[in-house]
Structures are given as C-alpha cells and as structure tokens.
Design a protein around this nucleic acid. Structure first.
Length: 340
DNA sequence: ACACGACCTTCCGC
DNA sequence: AGCGGAAGGTCGT
C-alpha cells in the first residue's frame, strides 16, 4: 500500500454571495449535461473542480455559499496558491455568468413564446455556464451517440488517468481536467480505448493534438472574441466535432449566447412543440442552420440560453418518467428475488 | 445536397 | 437468457 503523496484537503472557510434561486438553481445547472464534473457530495452540496481548485457549493434562500479546499504545507505549495475572497467570488461570478440577469431574460422569452412560458415556470434558475474551452471541447466530443451517465463515468476515468491530482476528499483522489500536454503522447488513443472511450478515443486524442499543435489553449480561448460563425467554422475542422458539438462549445465556453446546439432532443422539440417544418427527414447541415435560425428568431440574441432551459426541463421530465416507471415495476413484479 | 450505415460501449426492454 | 435498439453525433460513401 502506497503512502499518500498528496495530503488530504484541509477544511476551509465558507463564504457567500447574494444569489436567489431565480438567478441560479445549482441542482439543475450542474447535473443537466452542461458539465460532467460536479457531484452531489451531500444533500444540496455540490463538489467539483473549477479553475484548478476543488470547490463545494450550496445555496439557501437567497445566497450562494462556497468553500475551496486547500492543501497542507507539505503538499505542493507552488501549485497550491490559495485564493483570497475576492478572487474566489470573481471565479464564481465568471463561471456562472452572474452579471447576466436571468429573470429579465425569462420574461422576454416567455413573452415571445407561450410554450417556453409554460415549461419554464417549473424550471427557474437554469443558466449557461462559462466553461474552460478545452474541457468543454473534449467533453462534448464524448457526448456523441452516448448518454449522460456513461459520459460522466468516462470523463471521470479520463481525469483520473490524465489529470493532475489536486487533493483527497473522503479518501477519494480528485483530479484536474487533463491539460493538452498530458494528451499528446503517442499512446493516448490506445489508453482512451482501454478506458472505454470506443471510437471517440481517436477523436479526443486527435483534437487534443490538433489544438496543441495549432491554436493552443490560448488560441482556442481567443475564439471568444471572434464572431459566432467564425468560431463555429474553426471548431468544425477538428476531428469528432460537427455542428452539434461546435455549437455546444460556442455556447458554453466561447461566449456565443446565440448558438443553439441542435441534437435529436431539440429537433424533436422543434417539430412537436413548434410544428416547425424545418429541414428534411434528417439532421443535415441545412436543417441545423434552419432550426438554429428559427429559435434565434423566436428567442433573440440569447437563444442558446433559452434552449438550455428547455433541454434541462425535458431531461428532468424524462428522468421523472423513468423514476415513476421503476416505482410501478417494483410494486407489480414477482416477489421472488432469488438468483439461480 | 441528402440518405445511409458504421462506429465503441453500456444499459434497458422485451 | 439473449438480442435489438438507443444514447445530447460524426464521418465516409
């Protein structure tokens, strides 16, 4: 048994900032497929990695509470730069984009769209995160033809295998999201396959290499300052990145609030709820364009944010449905639970 | 330009 | 008890 080289996280102070539920619902935002790196460490408390630090967040009636785990003296002091209160608050305000007032946007979307109004009533506080571009890009490459529970497990193994270890929490090591330089080895694809990435192994390793040898992490981040169409075009040149993944990265990491990721869910919503006769029978590039334009026309400049609300609501309702199905099954199934 | 099928793996339903 | 189908798609034909 190897001794720990990294100390356990030491307890630290809780701080808070004003933040009502209409502005943010942690549970909806952190567990609905925008990010895959937060877990509910205890009821109402969400733990995850943000900006190379491990955080736990919770909220009460009108405040967002947060704490950052530090390291003990004998850890790696150079990397364990402690944050002061102002820095912590700034990181959170940036990540949750708290300068964007959500209630006013909900009102505008609801006024323009009765269906949004109806759905959003039960799902306040769903906002778009401003994520790290590399993490967002590589994560969403993993979402193709996949489901959230498996994506989450894959990303976790990915971080454990390639990410720097930050601290221990309840005896579990917490790792940073891998850096590009950690992914440029010749055996990366093979290792990803061993981690169960399937055909996505080639895409993740290929895109990591392309970014590392091309734009760099800074260049990718700099796409925040170029127009949506330009950023989207650049992203679509990367292996494993099509219209849907590019739009996810544009929306959730590159400040393109108008980007509307069109997946099978959104396509179905567009047809069922809006009777949109857009595109043909399949999600062609033209269909993506038309559906995106349709929602931008309906919701305006923050159409991607509105889409995030509907997506979240759709996801939660399906989860609710599955739960009630399971409940019903338990009641009527044979009591014999014996395995032969 | 569009329609197909393949692609890894896991989970769920019949 | 196994098999088919689908899961926040993308790529080549």
């Amino acid at each position: 048994m190897k001794l720990r080289e990294t100390p356990s996280a030491c307890p630290s102070l809780w701080r808070s900032l004003p933040c009502p539920p209409a502005e943010l619902r942690l549970d909806l935002v952190l567990s609905s497929g925008q990010t895959f790196r937060w877990w509910e460490s205890s009821p109402g408390a969400w733990t995850g990695v943000l900006g190379e630090h491990v955080w736990t967040l919770r909220q009460d009636r009108d405040r967002l509470w947060y704490t950052v785990y530090g390291k003990e003296e004998n850890g790696h002091p150079a990397e364990a730069a402690m944050l002061d209160a102002a820095e912590m608050e700034q990181i959170l305000r940036d990540y949750f984009q708290l300068d964007v007032g959500l209630p006013a946007l909900y009102r505008a979307w609801g006024a323009a769209d009765p269906h949004f109004c109806k759905v959003a009533k039960d799902f306040p506080g769903v906002r778009v995160l401003r994520q790290d571009p590399v993490e967002c890009l590589l994560s969403f490459i993993c979402t193709s033809n996949n489901h959230i529970s498996r994506i989450t497990a894959m990303i976790e193994r990915f971080c454990q295998a390639f990410g720097r270890r930050l601290c221990y929490l309840d005896d579990q090591a917490v790792h940073a999201f891998p850096s590009l330089s950690a992914l440029t080895g010749a055996d990366t694809e093979e290792r990803l396959r061993a981690l169960g990435f399937g055909y996505r192994a080639k895409f993740v390793s290929g895109t990591a290499r392309a970014i590392a040898e091309g734009l760099g992490a800074e260049g990718l981040r700099a796409l925040r300052a170029v127009p949506y169409a330009e950023a989207r075009r650049v992203l679509c040149t990367l292996p494993g990145v099509g219209a849907k993944v590019a739009d996810c990265v544009c929306l959730m990491a590159l400040d393109k609030a108008e980007a509307v990721p069109v997946d099978t869910h959104v396509w179905r919503i567009a047809r069922q709820r809006y009777g949109a006769v857009l595109g043909g029978r399949s999600l062609t590039p033209r269909a993506h364009q038309e559906i995106g334009n349709f929602f931008r026309g309906l919701w305006g400049s923050h159409a991607g944010w509105a889409q995030a609300v509907l997506f979240c609501a759709d996801l939660r309702k399906n989860q609710e449905l599955a739960r009630s199905r399971d409940q019903g099954k338990q009641g009527q199934d044979s009591p014999g639970d014996v395995t032969h």
